[in-house]
Amino acid sequence: MIISRQKEFRDILKTIEQQNIFIIGCGKCAAKQHLGGETEVLEMKRKLGKSGKNVVGCTVLSSACNIASWDDVLTQNPDIKKAEALLVMSCGGGVSIISSVAEKAVYPALDTESLGGVCRDTTVLEQCGMCGECDIWIFGGICPIGQCSKNMLNGPCGGAVEGKCEVDERKCVWDEIHTKLKSLGRLELLKEIHHPKDHSKKRRRK
């Protein structure tokens, strides 16, 4: 799941110059995180209206980043034609897909943060650093590129205080990696020296 965060409403308002707006939510990740489902789209509609914008309509697509045909979207939501701008409440993937087909000004309502997931109803953040050469098994299935702020591959930095990461409010992920590998009986994986990542694997592809 793509993890996103709601932008400040005043920042959204500042970026949208146009008056007539159509709002598009996303029924996948954004809806699961209560950031782009029906409730949030209707709330956005109310707020924009209160701030003097004219919301010509709104919808929640089943998935903003997976659109079979823009014509179908238009047929089902003819009010989009009346809009000068679209406000998309999805991750950057959805915003860019809609931007590529809509031929109108498209604005994001969310900031995209990381690749996470949902496990037993709990949303977990930053599960994958999207490095382009996955070797997560070495770290007991816990990605240090995604979860360690300094992307350390050979063990913790010296900055954790009583298990808390130097950078943010989270625990130092290296303690978790260690505990997990210990429970799996694979501590020898930690003893190996892991070489720097090959960032050319992240290059653009056709």
Partner: peptide, 19 residues
């Protein structure tokens, strides 16, 4: 970087100290 006086700087950490 967030500890210092340019908190918005891009953190590099291309290598760690072992590497």
């Amino acid at each position: 970087p967030t500890k210092g006086d340019h908190p918005g700087a891009k953190p590099v950490y291309d290598l760690d100290s072992v590497q």
